[in-house]
Amino acid sequence: MSRQPMRRTIRGGRPYFFDDPAIDKVLNMVVVLASEVWTLRERLMAMEAIQVTRGGLKAGEIDRFEFKPEDEANLSAQRKEYIDSLFRVLAEQVDEARRSKPAPSAAPAKAQRSKALKSKANKATARKKK
């Protein structure tokens, strides 16, 4: 037998607990992301410790460090870009709304949406009745 990569998916799938399994899935992604954030922190801490050992940094120097005004401005612009990109998916919706005109062509789409909303509302009442 030649070497095969190890299997990573679980036979029989995984259990879900929320009414909509999407919630479990999103939570899983959040935790994996949290793990990567932690991983970065450990790496940064390692880098800092190495620098301190080598004399490139003094202990606590980063905590006392202040950016120069031009660096601060640069960072601030980058932070805005970062936050914008984080919520890009919501912006898309807004862009689309602003692009669409209340012309006759929009009418069927609107009708469809209100129909979808109605059926959603019906489902919600049905659930409540249960």
Binding site: R14, F17, F18, L27, N28, V31, V32
Partner: peptide, 13 residues
Amino acid sequence: KFYSTLRVTAQDM
């Protein structure tokens, strides 16, 4: 639900 889904997530991880 949160306990359970986090436990499954941790188990998988």
